[in-house]
Write a protein that binds this DNA or RNA. Structure first.
Lengths: 230, 230
DNA sequence: CACTATAGAGACGTCGGACGTTTGGCGGCG
DNA sequence: CGCCGCCAAACGTCCGACGTCTCTATAGTG
């Protein structure tokens, strides 16, 4: 299990060392193969791995390029990983969100612009308007939290929290919320976060975010308990 | 760009749906190929991607198995991703640590056992003893923070913070620390964290962790400034 | 009967070549 | 000058072959 993995390591290290900066075009696969001492098949596996990690961008008929290496790309894999976690570790994910999301929201309160606030207010309205459509609720909920965190200007933070709130996890929470007739209450929690942000009140934003995550965690527990017993 | 990616998605979805629980053995590659309607080459690329994501475990001469899907495995990729981030985004990573690590340390103060404290105290002693060996300092520093966070019992949280403190990033910070004759001061900061944990004082632990991350961030800034200008 | 050494089957690792499909650019034509 | 079509280049996919490693069942041994 050496040749292909060596190739992966080699390419990765060339990128990390700056030898292959973002945007660089790699040599054609046959040449790359010769250069690294293995067959084209092996190179293709290596390239595929790096492509799936959003490190390389393969354009059919053209060539293979190094991506921008932006956090939003490289941290994309976190989302897929979280989607594969087993039920009994989802509460761990929620605990991380409980620690991180309030802090991030607090930071957002300090950095938010008026335009950002308008965006978030709009999403909140959309959410109220879609109170009967589970699918849309999840979509606006995702947009709400993403937009709030994005106002911190920290792309790494945003990508991490996006990944931690994978679609499946969110869907489960909302399933619980709706079946428990708690959707309205949860929308109010979003409103509370919005108001705190509007006042640029860091501590209040932090507190309201914590309360919100706590609610989500509680409903996740009920959903998990139900699916474990039933 | 469909066949291989479809295969990846298919396998992943079979795992996520529970059709292929942890430990399951996959059919041999030729059979898997027939079953998914593509050649063995394609299957191999798909398997390789999932292997690199620690979703599959390929044992030569034996077969391919689904891993335990433990957070420590699936989140391993985060570390590799962080290693590839460009210099100008490392400060974003530090900001995330600034938000998350104090909270995690505070939580650790609540959950730490006496045995855990002994372990951490030991690492602290090791660190003082190795004050002249940069390599060992980095190693004990890593162990210190890892052990502290691990006492929360949250494997997901631990893996995330481990990933955010990649080896390269740590090495750069320590390079700055040592060149700036601040190694001793930093060890004292670890001592402060240790004392706070020992008192089971959540807020104090939180505060001392924040101060520590702040110091690291400051030194990272100087290192980055130097390498950018020089 | 229990244990060990060994041979074989099964599975992944690697290679080489061939052909299809797509892309991008060059050159001719209007 | 601009548009269109052709062609070389590069990735996508497939096939078949052979090497190497594991596990296991089997035969042999004490």
């Amino acid at each position: 299990m050496a040749l292909t993995d060596d190739a992966i390591a080699k390419i990765r290290s060339m990128i990390q060392s700056g030898e292959l900066p973002p945007g660089t075009r790699l040599p054609p696969e046959p040449q790359l193969a010769a250069q690294m001492g293995l067959s084209r098949s092996g190179v293709r596996e290596a390239v595929k791995v790096l492509e799936s990690a959003r490190v390389l961008d393969v354009r059919r008929g053209d060539g293979t390029y190094v991506t921008s290496l932006a956090p939003r790309l490289l941290l994309e894999g976190l989302g897929v990983a979280v989607e594969l976690l087993r039920d009994d570790t989802l509460l761990e994910v929620m605990e991380v969100r409980r620690l991180l999301e309030p802090m991030a929201t607090g930071l957002a309160a300090l950095r938010m612009t008026d335009a950002d606030l308008d965006d978030i207010g709009q999403i909140l309205e959309d959410m109220r308007a879609a109170a009967d459509d589970a699918e849309k609720l999840i979509q606006f909920d995702t947009a709400f939290h993403h937009t709030v965190v994005a106002t911190t200007g920290n792309e790494t933070l945003t990508s991490l929290l996006d990944g931690l709130s994978g679609r499946t996890l969110r869907a489960r929470v909302w399933r619980g919320l709706i079946e428990g007739n708690a959707a309205h209450k949860t929308i109010d929690e979003h409103q509370a976060i919005y108001l705190a942000l509007r006042s640029r009140d860091q501590l209040l934003a932090q507190a309201s975010a914590l309360i919100h995550v706590n609610t989500s965690e509680a409903w996740l527990r009920t959903v998990l308990a139900k699916s474990a017993s039933g």
